[in-house]
Design a protein around this nucleic acid. Structure first.
Lengths: 221, 221
DNA sequence: ATTGTCATTCTTGCATACAATATGTTTGAC
DNA sequence: GTCAAACATATTGTATGCAAGAATGACAAT
């Protein structure tokens, strides 16, 4: 019974938020959650504080915790920052990647190819995470990798929504190919530019995102 | 007696870490802190978890919390990311600033000028924060501003050290001038480049940082 | 009928008690 | 004399209890 309880709970609740089990705006009652998971309120509180620090929930003094519901504007901003950080990771990776990094990157890219062809969005979603993780690792900046991973996690639900847009998966994969080429060619600025536009929610994609959000909003209301 | 207790404690302990009252690597004993601040262990634990989520302390299961001691490598990486984010904020600010932003930026710049001339590093440190805050605000990206502010806080102790290096304050101020000009001219890429090199710990400055860190290390040991 | 106020209830926030684990020290055996 | 094992102690992790504040509902007054 190490702190595993808290850790496990954190993952469960975080996952619940990410997958929509806990809807944005929903109130997270401490005793309810405690009963639900068969623990006391203390670990629940600690989990909620952690999630609050990450920005997934908001704790209003004396008024409990609610799942944060970032508006389209804020989600756009988050993607904007993510694009910049990923671009940076790509640029660093292009300059610093080792043989090992190269192998990992190609392996992840291969996995993405297979799941893209099979049309399995869930598989692609997972392999896509691997792919981006490989880039973070190749940047050889631990801090940057952590920042990217954290943001990636926070954006998880919205990325998932985006994959649903028609053809987004195939497009995404073909963008990956260009990114891999740029990195392996050691072209830092090309890698940066390609990753930026790969992540950024630009043009039509912003509209797609907003409308998908609206749909989900309607469903939960 | 709202959640002020936890909030107040968080500021106190965070500040203690930042100012060196709690040295890097120091163990943070829950009962000691509880006695010291006249509260029970519960709020202390909550504070420690929050600081852990921010990355200021590390909590090892069953082994307590210690003040994180990032090595030079990691500190360098943090500045690297900060440089990129500030550059981004500057670029956005150049495109989006309003009349109000312009006034705030110039005001902050003026304050920096006065404290730089007076040679007061503490005053300059504070005004410098205002200056950068004005840029974040002008970027009109709340999320980016939050990220920048958080990182800025984490890097606080090292920035302070840097100001001690001879002439750094004057150099910093003259760099500010260029940044202001680029932003107000609406030149996004110039603003980005100038801010990047303003923040980045490049060339000699990395050596300065490491040696200053080593000095401090020796002092606390 | 609507609105304002008061009271009750529910929930959070802090403290304290209890349980479990890790670490350090001591003792015994080889 | 040294190493290992066991026990004791100290410290973290979890539960529960108690108090204070906020939300909700009811009742009364306009």
């Amino acid at each position: 019974m190490a702190e595993n309880i808290v850790q496990g709970l954190r993952d469960k609740i975080e996952n619940g938020i990410v997958t929509g089990l806990f809807a944005p705006g929903e109130r997270l009652d401490e005793v309810q959650l405690a009963k639900r998971f068969g623990v006391s309120r203390t670990p629940i509180r600690e989990v909620l504080m952690q999630l609050s620090a990450i920005g997934l929930v908001e704790i209003r003094p004396r008024r409990g915790a609610v799942v944060v519901d970032p508006g389209p504007q804020r989600i756009y901003e988050m993607f904007e920052v993510m694009a910049e950080l990923e671009g940076m990771a790509g640029a660093l990776a292009a300059r610093r990647y080792t043989e090992e990094d190269r192998a990992d990157l190609l392996a992840a890219h291969g996995k993405c190819e297979r799941s893209a062809e099979s049309g399995d969005t869930d598989a692609y979603y997972y392999d896509n995470e691997l792919f981006h993780g490989a880039i973070y690792a190749a940047s050889h900046s631990e801090f940057l990798a952590e920042q990217c991973t954290t943001l990636h996690r926070r954006l998880r639900p919205y990325r998932r929504l985006q994959l649903r847009v028609r053809n987004r998966m195939k497009t995404s994969f073909s963008e990956h190919t260009g990114i891999v080429e740029a990195i392996l060619a050691g072209d830092a600025e090309a890698a940066r530019a390609l990753l930026r536009s790969h992540i950024a929610v630009q043009g039509d994609r912003f509209g797609d995102l907003v409308s998908t959000l609206a749909k989900r909003e309607a469903r939960t209301a």
